Computed example of a mutant assay.
Amino acid sequence: MRRTIPQRDLRNENAKVIDAVTAGETFVVTRNGEPVAELRPIRGGRRTFVSRDEIARLASTGVRIDHRKFRAELDHAIDQGV
């Protein structure tokens, strides 16, 4: 959920706002009624390990590609004579 708060509230209630952001809330900070910033949780970094089960789940929901048709379209789009 996205909430709008004035800059003054951010200054006066800093700890409460940061706790709410840590819990997943997003805030749009305004100055004189105009939005000037967005305060939101940081997304986690890139993972270095993906489990086999997750790979299998992702692969089963993916689009199936006909490799012959894909190759023909690629050969048509790219000059193979270079």
Rank of each mutant, 00 (worst) to 15 (best):
R3M: 03
R3T: 09
R3A: 07
R3H: 14
T4C: 08
T4A: 09
T4W: 06
T4I: 13
I5S: 02
I5R: 03
I5Y: 05
P6N: 14
Q7M: 13
R8E: 15
R8T: 14
R8D: 11
D9K: 04
D9C: 02
E13M: 05
E13K: 11
N14T: 12
A15Q: 09
A15S: 12
K16A: 14
K16Q: 13
K16W: 06
K16H: 11
V17Q: 05
V17D: 00
I18D: 00
I18S: 04
D19P: 01
A20P: 01
A20S: 11
V21S: 07
V21Y: 02
V21F: 02
T22W: 03
T22Y: 04
T22L: 12
A23G: 06
A23V: 02
A23H: 09
A23E: 15
G24N: 04
E25Y: 02
T26P: 00
V28M: 03
V28Q: 02
V28H: 00
V28L: 01
V28K: 01
T30F: 04
R31N: 12
R31V: 11
R31G: 00
R31I: 04
R31M: 10
N32L: 06
N32F: 09
N32I: 00
N32G: 04
P35S: 12
A37T: 04
E38W: 02
L39Q: 06
L39M: 09
R40T: 05
P41L: 10
P41Q: 14
P41I: 10
I42L: 14
R43I: 11
G44C: 01
G44T: 15
G45S: 14
R47D: 13
R47Q: 14
R47I: 09
F49H: 08
V50M: 10
V50P: 01
V50Y: 03
S51I: 04
S51Q: 08
S51L: 02
R52G: 08
E54T: 13
E54M: 06
I55Q: 09
I55M: 12
I55L: 15
I55A: 11
A56D: 14
A56S: 09
R57Y: 08
R57A: 15
L58G: 11
L58W: 10
A59H: 06
S60I: 01
S60W: 03
S60Y: 03
S60N: 13
T61A: 13
G62N: 11
G62V: 00
G62P: 00
G62W: 01
V63L: 13
V63G: 00
I65A: 04
D66V: 03
D66R: 07
D66A: 07
H67N: 03
H67D: 09
H67R: 10
K69E: 14
K69N: 02
K69R: 12
K69P: 00
F70I: 00
F70R: 05
F70S: 02
R71G: 00
E73T: 04
L74A: 04
D75R: 13
H76D: 14
H76N: 11
H76E: 12
A77C: 02
A77I: 05
A77F: 10
I78T: 08
D79L: 08
D79F: 02
D79H: 12
G81T: 15
G81Q: 13
V82H: 13
